[in-house]
Design a protein around this nucleic acid. Structure first.
Lengths: 346, 346
DNA sequence: AGGACTTCTGCAATCGATTTCACAACCAGC
DNA sequence: GCTGGTTGTGAAATCGATTGCAGAAGTCCT
């Protein structure tokens, strides 16, 4: 690979001048400049970004840690972030933690060693990784969608508690009395808020809560649904608290021969594109993902660009989503009992 | 940020010895080693990966360019690649080209400048970026899922032609006579093969082909479906050639009040998790994504590790998928004419 | 003619980690 | 006491681009 030195020699100049010619600095003779340009083209010269970053002490790269890229929720987030940062001249180094705390820690370390200029972080662990992050030289970090320790870093989260309450209240208003929630692992801030919101709405309606905890995977959604429906007093409505779970819920309902919303009403958190294309389309609580991601970009670039911003105390921004009522939720049917009888044959 | 030099000074040693102590080299006194370790911990020392990579001439980073991360197809691919490369000690630098040729070129340049050790490339352009890639020092490049110029690089693709033929033949075997295909942009190799396969099967059945071309977006799927069904002789079956298109197709069918498979049969390419959870579940042609991605990892790591491999002539591997017949495809109903009449009111 | 700029170029230091070379100290064996 | 091997450490070069400083050459003004 040709280096700047090769280009300089080929053009009969010093590396210093070649550098200035290529970077478009003033005080370079026009003839010299074209000679350098030509030599660079002929040699197929590509500047070494590592050397440049080492010298400049900035990589123009932002690290992003997400739990699961196959989840539309994070795919969408990554996509928005990537475009927005790119428009501002930054690269995005994407890490996928698979919802594992240890993976989180590894990536925070890696990104730090790679000297990314900032990190957008969707934590998969409650305690975070304070020991790693509390490194002497603080680079800007923004916690997105989930948070670890309120107050340590900028955080952009959704009001999951309110969302869960709204969805659950919608179901109780339809006169459902047995409403089960399928939740994620309690180590995540979002799970805790969603469960709290659900419990609150159930309590307000004087109903007993039933929560199925597990990982954010279709398998958990599937198994939890089967377990719930095999139960003596099966729920007439299910609150699926994340898209990957919903995939499993739908598959389980199909396998059991249960129809939505005839046999079971289904309300879900988040709003991936395929929710609306479902038959019936799913009632859900949609978060302003795009706005949240863009705010993250804004916070990061401001902290990087403005010295005053760099020392600003970290703040938490909370976004509110909105209920979208579609066809998957209706009042409980009288045939509910028949349906459970049918299940017994299964 | 503390440097190796700081650590060395703090431990009363030279940077050379500190480096050896940290890297676990032999010939370092046990006491010295612990002194260095302690100093490093106290100072919160993190090695600078840029400096290390500059010196070592390898970044332990693989670049990945995908067209669209919101498409399950590529999200799944990225996820598999990320895990596999990580298990082998490599980082993954993910770039999203949004199906734009210009973006492709920019990223190839960026990745080259960042001196990634290799690139896994899902091209969004027919001509590729030969000028960029033909750089003097050739780093391993593997084209995945799509390809540019057969023969220039290793390529791992699916037999899309056969897949499209199989799906279409399945529909003709069900006695459908008006089968429309919703396709992507013809600049992509996959699109061309899928269209070719569809045409071939239609010709074999003595039927007229109807292809709707456009970008790989839900919007295109939506509009194409509306256009098709508004037509005098609307198709009784639709072949959706990619998952993002299918999202739009389903939404359009719902908006039009057309049922699947009663009014229209639907067969789709690829097999994201939600296809099976659909009501009815979708008949599709599933590709061995995981195997393809893992082969890419294998090819790359072998070329990097074994000098003999590095000079091997590039080869193209073609994978075959499999038909999965589900509930979305049935013989055309007699009520088809009634349905089209109903459309007129729309 | 002499001073003050402006323009153009090169030398050499710098970023931070690694590694080659060299040297010193020590032990063993003869 | 000398040779040869094993340990342990440091000085200095290296990776490739950038930049502060200095110097050379030219222009302009008084």
């Amino acid at each position: 690979m040709a280096t700047l030195r090769d280009v300089a020699i080929s053009a009969g100049l010093s590396p210093a001048t070649a550098s200035r010619a290529l970077s478009g600095a003033r005080y370079v003779d026009a003839g010299t400049r074209t000679r350098v340009m030509t030599a660079a083209r002929d040699l197929g010269y590509r500047p070494n970004a590592l050397a440049r970053a080492l010298r400049a002490k900035q990589t123009m790269t932002i690290g992003l840690i997400v739990p699961d890229i196959r989840n539309d929720f994070y795919a969408e987030t990554a996509s928005v972030l990537q475009r927005a940062f790119e428009a501002r001249g930054y690269r995005l180094l994407l890490c996928i933690s698979n919802n594992e705390a240890e993976s989180d820690r590894t990536y925070l370390r890696t990104l730090t060693e790679f000297r990314v200029d900032a990190i957008v972080y969707v934590p998969s662990t409650p305690a975070g990784a304070r020991d790693i992050l509390a490194a002497p030289k603080r680079i800007p970090i923004v916690e997105l969608l989930r948070h670890t320790d309120e107050g340590t870093f900028d955080a952009i989260v959704s009001d999951d508690r309110e969302g869960a309450t709204a969805l659950t209240a919608h179901l109780t208003a339809l006169k459902h009395r047995r409403i089960a929630m399928i939740a994620g692992p309690e180590s995540l801030s979002t799970t805790r808020y969603r469960i709290a919101g659900y419990r609150e709405a159930m309590r307000a309606a004087g109903l007993a809560a039933r929560v199925e905890r597990g990982p954010y995977t279709p398998e958990h959604g599937y198994q939890a649904t089967r377990d719930l429906l095999a139960h003596e007093s099966a729920p007439t409505a299910i609150f699926s608290s994340a898209a990957p779970l919903t995939v499993g819920v739908l598959r389980a309902l199909k396998d059991l021969g249960a129809t939505v919303p005839g046999d079971v009403s289904l309300a879900a958190f988040e709003d991936p594109e395929w929710y609306a294309a479902q038959n019936p389309p799913l009632t859900c609580y949609a978060l302003p993902l795009r706005e949240m991601a863009l705010l993250a970009v804004d916070l990061v670039t401001r902290r990087l660009a403005e010295p005053a911003e760099a020392d600003r105390a970290p703040a938490t921004q909370r976004f509110t989503g909105r209920m979208i009522v579609r066809g998957s939720t209706v009042p409980p049917s009288d045939s509910a009992i028949d349906f459970r009888k049918g299940l017994a044959h299964d």
